[in-house]
Design a protein around this nucleic acid. Structure first.
Lengths: 219, 219
DNA sequence: AGTTCCATGTCGCGG
DNA sequence: CCGCGACGTGGAACT
């Protein structure tokens, strides 16, 4: 990684055009070649950047970064306050836990969370406008489309409604009822569910995970 | 801004839990207090971060960053390879050009893009749930609500649908038809448009800009 | 403070 | 590679 702190102006020409007037900033070049220009505040993200892969052409007071798509970043330097470079090696990467996919996996294993004799038909069941998280069949043989979110908001209810519209046009499936599941659901989203005859369920991630672990222990 | 390059492990506990095994990384603390942890590659964005406002508690080999929402970032340091701090001052900020607003301006000048005798009634026409980008009237005197996006996706169609719902309740305007305009429109968004009787149009920004420049040149 | 919506979104998965 | 949806989305504008 290479770091330069300097007066600079920056011009970006690509998906849009953007310009940074002269100021002191930190310019970071990572080992993979990506470039980021940080101000001292305002946001954790850089003001301007260029992703790898790209080519960096430099002379005394100007760097030009161009990527294969033809996007261009031009950095003009004034006074350089500081510069260093050092090897940091590979990063093992971030381990995440508790996102939607995990929730979907756990719930796919325990469809009875949604009803006594609920059975999973398919995860990511395809519709013309995208896949439904879970398609199940309840004890009476009725199809149930389940949309899972980490946080239940109106968007998610809209999404499930669209899926239901399409699924209910399929005579082999119809009628299909909907269940909206999330770790927590906003009052407005609950209201919209009720208005549309969609059942909402708040599920506890830690409970599910605990149950999951218990199941694991049995084997 | 303060920069430390060091061996570290990082734990984030907040909206999810995440963990970074030991490796050499750059830790950046900006003047507003936000913290970012960068690996030497992979992406221009940090692996982990904490937005301002927050409080940083530090001792010899551990920093704990907590924000008002109770999210927590814990950085345990091993060997410190490098450290510096310096003032960079305020940043004048980024000037942008070519985003949605620009597109709206260009299209407002050329309503005939959407039909032979289309006329602009108003930009940002207000509804109870927010302004419609363009309200026009076609050659037959029928009202047309136009939603403009840079990239046309399902969300935008939903948005236009909500506007149309409201506009059609206004007896002075009804019936109002909808046009969904974007530089490119996703197939599923097209499908949803067609399903709802909304006309979609893909517009070329450079063409519009060219035409715009031509118009400018005439005067 | 809460809500809505844009973004050079970025990222990852599946066809 | 494209299409699609999630994201600790972030961030700004407006109520």
């Amino acid at each position: 990684m290479r770091i330069r702190i300097a007066e600079c102006t920056v011009r970006y020409e690509g998906r849009l055009n953007a310009y940074l007037p002269s100021a002191t900033r930190l310019v970071m070049v990572k080992a993979d070649g990506c470039v980021a220009i940080h101000a001292d505040g305002g946001a954790y993200k850089p003001l301007n950047w260029m992703n790898a892969p790209n080519t960096l052409t430099e002379d005394d007071h100007q760097w030009i970064v161009i990527n294969p798509k033809g996007e261009k970043l031009i950095i003009d330097f004034g006074e350089i306050h500081f510069e260093t470079a050092l090897e940091m090696g590979e990063d093992p990467g971030l381990q995440k836990d508790g996102v939607e996919l995990e929730l979907q996996r756990l719930l796919a294993e325990r469809p009875e969370t949604f009803g006594e004799r609920m059975e999973l038909v398919r995860r990511e069941f395809p519709t013309p406008i995208g896949p439904v998280d879970l398609l199940c069949r309840d004890g009476d043989g009725v199809s149930v489309a389940i949309e899972i979110k980490r946080r239940g908001e109106i968007d998610g209810v809209e999404q499930l409604t669209r899926y239901l519209d399409f699924l209910n046009r399929d005579t082999r499936l119809a009628p299909v009822r909907g269940i909206f599941a999330a770790q927590s659901i906003k009052p407005q989203a609950k209201l919209l569910c009720e208005d549309r005859g969609i059942v909402w369920v708040e599920v506890d991630y830690d409970d599910l995970k605990g149950t999951d672990s218990d199941v694991m222990k049995l084997f």
